[in-house]
């Protein structure tokens, strides 16, 4: 464990808590893409299947349980509990255009041709594009609530910090995972436009409107 990965995990945790608090306090899921949240639930489910077979640490296991649990609660909030406030007309990204290519790529490009490893690779590739429905929805609605912007900033920062973690681990531990690094770069690059708007607008008290 290193500071970059720890801060990254905390940023990820914060993003999830911000989202749940926004939904619970405002009793609304307006502006939130249910499709992205479904993709995140798939990402965690396929990545953490080793939850019961390989123990890394208490921290690792408890975070995995938290991420899986909250991802399903979030999907439940959107499609059941606060369904009347779900804006399905603006959440129209065709996720099959993400899942099929990502599934095919995971089958072809992976570290080991085993079920668990292919599912882990699928999860890594899927996570890199899972935010697209949400960014697409923000561009369609033309703006995002500031709380949603904070959620996106924390979520985008987590994988950016993981890039620093991989640089650290390469030099100090000789650890290098090309699949995770490439997907992490793609994932972080997708947030660049949003990061720019967040820093130039939201931090000055303005609202975000995409496309800028």
């Amino acid at each position: 464990m290193n500071i970059f990965r720890l801060v990254g995990d905390m940023s990820h945790l914060l993003a999830i808590i911000i989202l749940l608090m926004k939904m619970w306090k405002s009793r609304s899921v307006a502006g939130i893409s249910g499709k992205s949240q479904i993709l995140f639930a798939i990402v965690f489910t396929t990545r953490y299947l080793d939850l019961f077979t390989s123990f890394v640490s208490i921290y690792n296991t408890s975070m995995k349980v938290f991420f899986i649990g909250t991802s399903y609660v979030t999907v439940y909030f959107i499609y059941q509990h606060f369904k009347p406030t779900y804006d399905s007309n603006h959440d129209t990204f065709r996720v099959e255009f993400l899942i099929v290519p990502v599934g095919g790529l995971a089958f072809l490009v992976n570290h080991e041709f085993s079920l668990l490893e292919i599912l882990w690779t699928f999860s890594i590739y899927l996570e890199s594009v899972a935010i697209l429905p949400q960014l697409f929805m923000v561009s369609k609605t033309g703006e995002a609530e500031s709380i949603t912007s904070h959620y996106l900033f924390a979520l985008g920062s987590y994988r950016a910090l993981y890039l620093l973690n991989w640089i650290y681990r390469y030099y100090f531990e000789g650890f290098f995972d090309l699949i995770a690094v490439v997907a992490g770069c793609v994932q972080t690059i997708l947030y660049c436009d949003f990061f720019y708007l967040y820093i130039t607008k939201v931090l000055k008290g303005k609202k975000i409107s995409l496309p800028a």
Partner: peptide, 10 residues
């Protein structure tokens, strides 16, 4: 073969 200490990250 997965990298050393495979998938010890979240």
């Amino acid at each position: 073969q997965p990298p050393k200490d495979a998938h010890d990250e979240l």
